[in-house]
């Protein structure tokens, strides 16, 4: 597998050219969207609520057809972390983590091992036998993350995975995600409402307009990995966040 250390060099895993989506009821969710994610890119999309961010991911994953343009996803394994953890409440943590490997027909021993590794990676060792309802929101998200990690995805789609969590948990999970990203180097397309989360995580921030969603502006994020939580308090970070926020405001009006 070709792994690259700097963004913009890995093979292209997702490419959108002039993609548009109009739902059957006539709602136009997306218009003229161009987007590219390579392995080793962490692309974050910020945009106002209802601008079609989830739609974007659903198209990328093939769950929803687009109505114009071309969308190419060149990834053998796709990770998708939904807005909710979508765990099966009757399955234990370990069984939940095994689920997608199970659905992809991987042999039992293989997926057990993969699940164990993934559980270790997200720091849930010791909770294998817990049921989802015994976990906090943050832990559920980790299970969801681990579930996708078992596939060793080339492309990871995240739909506001930490949106429902408190600030502290969110920041901690951000750091863990960065750690995972710097070791696994998948391509990531990450949706968020939070400008600071976007800048903190990504190699590239894409700002979308209000509905119908279009790409208003794209920002390269110059900070290297691994990133320290203190990055958030540097002037460079503040300056870039300011620019992203401004683009977001302008795109909204």
């Amino acid at each position: 597998m070709a792994t690259s250390d700097s963004p913009g060099q890995g093979e292209v895993v997702l490419s959108f050219v002039d993609v548009a989506k109009t739902y059957p009821d006539g709602t136009t969710a997306l218009e003229h969207v161009d987007l590219e994610v390579r392995r080793g890119d962490f692309v974050t999309v910020v945009g106002p609520s209802g601008c079609g961010k989830s739609t974007l991911l659903r198209i990328a994953s093939g769950l929803e057809p687009h109505t114009a343009g071309t969308s190419t996803v060149d990834s053998r394994h796709l990770g998708y972390v939904f807005q909710d953890a979508t765990l099966l409440p009757w399955r234990t943590v370990a069984q939940n983590v095994e689920l997608v490997a199970e659905l992809s027909g991987r042999p039992k021993n293989d997926r057990k091992a993969a699940a164990k590794d993934a559980i270790d990676l997200v720091g849930l060792t010791g909770f294998e036998k817990h049921l989802p309802r015994q976990l906090s929101g943050g832990m559920r998200m980790r299970v969801s993350l681990a579930r996708s990690l078992t596939l060793a995805p080339d492309l990871f789609l995240f739909d506001e995975p930490f949106g429902a969590l408190d600030e502290i948990t969110r920041e901690r999970l951000n750091d863990e995600l960065i750690r995972l990203f710097s070791t696994q180097r998948f391509g990531a397309l990450f949706i968020t409402h939070s400008v600071s989360e976007a800048v903190y995580l990504s190699t590239e921030v894409v700002v979308m307009s209000g509905r119908p969603g279009r790409v208003v502006q794209t920002f390269d994020v110059p900070f290297g990995y691994p990133r320290s939580p203190d990055l958030r308090f540097t002037p460079e970070f503040a300056a870039l966040s300011g620019e992203v926020s401004r683009a977001l405001r302008e795109g909204h009006s």
């Binding site: 010791g126 909770f127 817990h130 015994q134 906090s136």
Partner: peptide, 15 residues
């Protein structure tokens, strides 16, 4: 009735 493992308590709250 659940078999909660007796591992060291984690960072986050468990039911």
């Amino acid at each position: 009735l659940t078999d909660s493992p007796a591992e060291a308590a984690p960072d986050e709250i468990v039911a």
